[in-house]
Simulated assay, not measured.
Amino acid sequence: MTDKQERLTSTQVRDANLADWRQILGRLKARFRTGDFATGLALVDKIGEVAEDSDHHPGILFTYSDVIVTLVSHDVRGITSRDLDLARRISSLAAELEIESDVSGITQLELGLDTSLGEGLAPFYAALLGGAVDSGEPDDPSGQVPTVWWQEPDGTDETYALPEQSFEQRWHFDVWVPHDEGERRLQAVLDAGGRLVSDRAAPAYWVVEDADGNRSCICTPAGR
């Protein structure tokens, strides 16, 4: 039996077979299509009851048409069996209310800055984004802005080496999707006029660029 304090691997999370949930950036995330405010509020109320009962509290984004729930064990900075248990209970509540989930729309945006000075820049970006420095990176506990991380120059690993650009690009988007959504998201980008720059690290990430040459990464928890 898994220790409730033990951080689970991405494989262990997938093997839990949580149909409504996907792992994104070290968190479990689900999107419930409530369709209207009253239905969403009813679901949020029920989630609040089970969260209090289990003494484990999710993040909730509540809009007119959706309830998006995020689960993470902050004490270990990752997913534990506590999150799996609460995810199952929340899915049961949604099923009782006949609310469907939509894993295809689950996404998380992260900003990556190419620099070797990240730790020194962290206080600036924490102040700019209204957060605080956590483990050397800006963090916003309220979830209002994307997370920011530093990608240091490193040409030693050929797997991650990318073709040179004719101009310097310092910022890039890391768009996180579930393990089973990466290829679909990549195809959507290509269909929209984007170009695949590199798939050498797939399925961990694909590097794509827009028509103007600006690069971004489509990232998944797979292959890490």
Rank of each mutant, 00 (worst) to 15 (best):
F32V: 08
L97V: 02
S142P: 02
E152W: 04
R185F: 00
D15I: 05
D102V: 14
A122N: 11
S65E: 11
L121M: 15
I218E: 01
D212N: 11
S10C: 04
G40R: 07
R7M: 09
E181D: 05
R185I: 02
R200I: 07
R185C: 00
W176Q: 01
I24T: 03
D174A: 02
A202L: 06
L129G: 12
E164P: 02
R31G: 02
D140L: 13
T11K: 15
Q187R: 08
A192P: 00
G35M: 08
T2I: 14
K4R: 12
L128V: 15
G130I: 10
F124G: 09
L121N: 14
S10A: 08
Y125G: 11
S91N: 13
D102K: 05
A201H: 12
R89P: 07
V13H: 00
Q165P: 04
P221M: 05
T147H: 10
S81H: 08
R200F: 03
T70M: 02
D66R: 10
K46L: 13
V145W: 06
L97N: 08
W21D: 02
R195D: 06
T2W: 03
G136V: 02
R224Y: 13
I218W: 01
S92I: 02
D45F: 06
D15F: 03
V67I: 15
Q151K: 10
A122W: 09
Q108L: 12
L84C: 03
S104H: 03
V67G: 03
G193M: 04
R77S: 12
G136H: 11
A204S: 14
G59I: 04
L93H: 14
E168F: 08
D55C: 06
H74G: 05
Y205V: 02
V175P: 00
R215A: 04
V13Y: 00
E100N: 09
F173T: 12
L97Q: 14
E168I: 13
D75T: 08
